[in-house]
Design a binder for these strands. Structure first.
Lengths: 188, 188
DNA sequence: TAATGTCATCCTACTAGTAGGTAGGTATAT
DNA sequence: ATATACCTACCTACTAGTAGGATGACATTA
């Protein structure tokens, strides 16, 4: 018994590949080589690529939501919370990756149905969290508008990380995030 | 002689596939079937997939820059111009596609080198155009800041179209674009 | 006018390599 | 004895790409 280490190695590699190259940009062979296991053995842990994808997304979502809970504990101010939210993306960019679900959002048309649902759920969590925090600031604001503002924040950050990586210029992300925060602070 | 119609049919299909499914999400077989030509015959027009990709991007860029020129002719007000810029993305979203170069930006790590350069050039054109128009409004502003503001606009729109398509909710794009315009109008 | 050559536009038939996945086995630990 | 954690060997379907040929339009030449 190796304490499931191989399983987690596979999961880690699959996640990295998905964040760097997209769902259609890697294969079992890539993982096999990097983890040091035979291709067929990957099927012992994940019977299909789709099931592997689901496992990766669920873990990612769980960890991400954990970060959001931590932010709520560490910060009481809504703007500081959103600021820390944007900071969650920084290490991802610095490792030349995209947000897992941002990348898969681009791939959405090619994904197995079961994966699509998981990705949408991830973003529903994000919108909910952002809405709850924006509500602390914007009094008497409709749920619809809270959702719109949340989506705007998410879209801007996802686009920014994509453009920053493509241009090999991390400042594109940093500046966009900063602008976002400034505008939120000014608004009411 | 068929006036190159097959070549353009291939180009059209390849572009649609790239915008809907990404560079790794389609194959010669897909195009072959849709255009009604044998797989091998595609190589008559495009010796490699990379060369096909380059042709698609160059044409897309040329047409897109044509739209930007038209906007400059039709509108003299900087804000109206940027507004029309955001409108360029609407038909793309309504056809369930992404901006070609936005999609390829996500795929960037898996692309042949020659494609990467073409994509970056597309966005350089976009930043230049936006910078020139923002300059009409923001007096005494540095080139660097013009570039930052332009990248912010591009990133927000690219992210918005991606999130809108994934969520099957076009309003995510419409609202983000509208907010962008409102903020530009207010700023100085 | 008729024969000839050239070129574009396809085709059939094929290649090496890769994709995800399966069948059935072995070694080890509990 | 049973389950976990691998393995070898294999499969079918698909990947981009190649070799070489057929067809037909058009221009050149005899």
């Amino acid at each position: 018994m190796q304490l499931l280490s191989k399983k987690f190695e596979i999961l880690d590699l699959a996640q990295e590949m998905m964040q760097k190259r997209g769902y259609n940009g890697f294969s079992y062979a890539d993982i096999s080589e990097a983890v040091g296991i035979r291709k067929a053995s990957i099927h012992h842990y994940f019977p299909s690529k789709a099931s592997m994808g689901v496992a990766v997304i669920r873990r990612y979502r769980k960890i991400f939501n954990g970060h959001l809970e931590n932010i709520d504990k560490e910060e009481k101010n809504w703007l500081n919370r959103v600021n820390k939210y944007t900071k969650l993306y920084e290490p991802v960019l610095l490792e030349n990756k995209l947000c897992l679900c941002g990348m898969l959002a681009a791939d959405i048309e090619t994904l197995p149905k079961i994966l699509k649902k998981e990705i949408r759920d991830f973003f529903v969590d994000n919108v909910d969290w952002l809405s709850n925090n924006l509500k602390l600031h914007y009094k008497n604001i409709s749920k619809k508008r809270l959702s719109e503002l949340s989506w705007k924040i998410i879209a801007s950050l996802q686009g920014a990380i994509m453009m920053a990586r493509m241009s090999d210029n991390v400042d594109i992300f940093f500046f966009t995030a900063k602008e976002l925060l400034i505008q939120l602070e000014k608004s009411n």
